[in-house]
Design a protein around this nucleic acid. Structure first.
Lengths: 327, 327
DNA sequence: ATGAAAGCGCTAACAC
DNA sequence: GTGTTAGCGCTTTCAT
């Protein structure tokens, strides 16, 4: 609602002086920025894909992403949250760590969506993969092939993804009437070396208790496990079947191509952003209408099983692995 | 310089009110934030590693990184630069695109370090890999094995890394007195599909001109090329030697393990950050001393050749590949 | 050693 | 329609 002439005069001045609006001053005045905070635990291919999902979605809402990495460290997470707060973001997307609950105060009043994992703060909104269900379907795939001694390699049980995947493993065993055997379960730190070590241990058990199949619940541990299998001269899937976690070019190219649980990583990031935005919006409305805060919304994305050639019937039940499903 | 009593009184108040300094207001007042802008062209494992290097270094200087992705798009790059400017960063680390030169005005007066590539703005500071030298050593490795028909798969020559690597390829040929043959050179977009296609083309040439070795100048194109080789039923290194680009778990695990040029990706990111900070500091001093602006500083990091098992003597020269170097 | 005031660049509210 | 003003939270300067 400005006269054409004034409009042109202003636009001219803008061009001549090279005027650029200052986002900081704007945010300060409005008490709210066009930023959104994203705190991830590391910057590896998985997290990069998550971040890309978040960024691409954020762009649609004209939001900038301020990225921090906590490296699972309490100090770094605290610093990240403090810094973020002081930048007045609209909200926060956070991969929680073991320390997040101590930092709850830093999140007070800020819309937060927990991504990939869950901190245990019950009101928190979250977007994650169906860890229980996906692990269950992985292990069920193995029981259906006839495996009864199935080794499981999981993350430390301080992280919700790790407890969920262990739960799914147990569920599947129960479903197949196979007793849970703690000797077949190993815990690592989601990194390659620990998967390597765990697989080495499991495959070195005496022949009568040695697992005929392995479910490895993280991408990097899967790589480690496959390398361990190779070192031992054991053949996949003839001597041992392996279901890995997280799909990638590497999993597809391995010899043999791996059967995996494929996380919808990019979608996870996008969903987190969409969830956050709708949360922010509902909040804005609620503050007008004066509605009470609703409980945390939990989004669960399925992670399908992709059957390739690293799984087959156990070799003591014989039937050579001739009729496998192809990709 | 405050009385102890006042100090305590203030600190108490801080605790009770839950006071948090506002970075925005501070930046506005000081006309400078503790932020640094990082604009990358994509968010894949390579760029994630770059970003991690930048972040880790930035942390030492107590700087936050604001990350943007340009996706090589002129619109997105412009938006990223505009947004960044309005956040008053101390400086900018930028992977330039074909459009960066058009956006030079947006960079006016801001310390900028170009990362990985170079835009051609001569005064710009830059941190990159020694593309010419590394490609030269890759191809020289092949000529020394006895190859004379060496296929080259490069990126489009609009990007400095691509021109540099082609240059190195030519240099190495000249050094071995092998004439440059345009028919042996293919150009892709650094992505897997284009590497696949290029390799398919080169390996389908008539036997008398078909290359006995391939130098593939990007990581993803290398994957594509290896897949193409497999599809054709050609054996590496017996029928064709391949030197790939960028090391990774995938390159190490491929059958056979790949000979590659290993970019010091993380270091590249770190170096960019260090360069930027020293640039900012020298600038601050110069503004006091009134010194003239110095020319752009170019940092060149070496990318060593790692010889594994994907390269050997050409098979028409015979001598079976028995005496290879191991990792 | 402490308090007071001005102003960074912006927007919301109000008067003209 | 257009011009003016106050104030977001901080730092710097100046006065006490």
């Amino acid at each position: 609602m400005v006269a054409q002439e004034t409009r042109d005069r202003v636009l001219d001045a803008v061009r001549q002086t090279g005027y650029r609006p200052n986002a900081l001053a704007r945010s300060l005045r409005q008490q709210e920025s066009r930023n959104l905070g994203l705190v991830i635990t590391d910057l590896n291919p998985f997290h990069a894909t998550l971040a890309k999902g978040v960024q691409d979605a954020a762009e649609q809402y004209d939001l900038n992403v301020i990225l921090f990495t906590s490296d699972e460290s309490e100090r770094k997470e605290r610093r990240a949250l403090e810094t973020l707060r002081s930048h007045m973001p609209q909200g926060l997307i956070l991969i929680p760590t073991a320390h997040t609950r101590e930092h709850q105060a830093l999140l007070q009043g800020l819309p937060v969506v927990e991504l990939d994992r869950v901190s245990g703060i019950s009101e928190a909104h979250s977007v994650q993969v169906d860890n229980v269900g996906s692990a269950r379907s992985a292990v069920q795939h193995l029981t259906e092939l006839g495996h009864r001694r199935i080794g499981g390699i999981f993350g430390h049980q301080t992280v919700s993804t790790a407890t969920g995947r262990l739960q799914g493993y147990k569920d599947a065993l129960r479903g197949a009437a196979i007793p849970f055997d703690p000797a077949l379960v190993q815990f690592g730190d989601y990194r390659e070396a620990s998967g390597h070590e765990a697989a080495l241990h499991l495959l070195s058990l005496p022949a009568n208790v040695r697992p005929t199949a392995l479910f490895v619940s993280s991408h990097e541990m899967t790589v480690g496990a496959v390398l361990a299998v190779r070192e031992l001269g054991v053949r996949i899937p003839h001597d041992v079947s392996v279901v890995g976690f997280d799909d990638s070019r590497l999993m597809q190219i391995l010899e043999p191509p791996m059967t995996v649980i494929a996380q919808p990583t990019y979608d996870l990031g996008q969903a987190a952003c969409h969830t956050l935005v709708s949360l922010v919006r509902r909040r804005a409305e609620a503050s007008v209408a004066g509605t009470a805060t609703e409980p945390g919304k939990k989004v669960l994305l399925p992670a399908p099983l992709i059957v390739r050639h690293s799984t087959g019937p156990p070799c003591d039940v014989t039937t050579p692995p001739s009729l496998e499903l192809s990709t």
